[in-house]
């Protein structure tokens, strides 16, 4: 069979990996790299992108993706492919708080439309946009696997379930 399943690593490992990220970030990425076979550094690409994104105010730039590519000895295009495939990566600047509202079936029939409407009005943004003060981005997402708590959204790493306008007010008021 013609299946080619070799790591797509570059022919020459990049030098000066220390110069790419600060030592803390490197240590965190290295923890992920250590989980995989030695020749599969690229297995850590999603984790590395996530860490780098976090350190950059929630989004990735071409320069950062190139650094991840160099750090993992990947072709830059292979990193762009990954970053543009998974929905949690942001390739444009986002607000400080990314409000990810599920609008899939269970949430929809439990009123996610009203939740979106309320958020749009409260934050003065449309789905897919970032508020003028840069504090909030509102993003429509697919099922987050918390249908029992519909309607729900995610901000940062945290799920908020059984949303009501009052609850939303208190959640958003609690954010810096």
């Amino acid at each position: 069979m013609g299946f080619k399943n070799v790591p797509m690593s570059t022919a020459k490992p990049s030098e000066n990996k220390e110069s790419l990220f600060d030592s803390k970030l490197r240590a965190e990425i290295d923890k992920w790299i250590a989980k995989y076979p030695q020749e599969w550094r690229q297995s850590a690409v999603m984790a590395a992108l996530m860490l780098v994104q976090e350190g950059n105010g929630g989004y990735l730039t071409t320069e950062l993706m190139d650094k991840v590519a160099a750090y993992l000895d990947m072709a830059p295009i292979a990193v762009y492919e990954v970053a543009s495939f998974y929905s949690m990566f942001e390739l444009k600047p986002v607000g400080k708080h990314k409000v990810c509202v599920c609008t899939n079936v269970s949430c929809m029939i439990n009123g996610s439309d009203r939740i979106v409407e309320y958020l749009e009005k409260k934050l003065d943004v449309k789905l897919g946009q970032t508020s003028k003060d840069g504090k909030y981005s509102l993003k429509e997402v697919e099922c987050l696997g918390a249908c029992g708590g519909a309607p729900m959204f995610q901000i940062g790493n945290k799920y908020y379930e059984n949303l009501t306008p009052e609850l939303i007010d208190s959640i958003l008021d609690g954010l810096e």
Binding site: I77, Y80, S84
Partner: peptide, 11 residues
């Protein structure tokens, strides 16, 4: 060619 220059980005 042995260099990944073109890719399929997006989904």
């Amino acid at each position: 060619a042995g260099i990944r220059e073109l890719g399929a980005t997006g989904r």
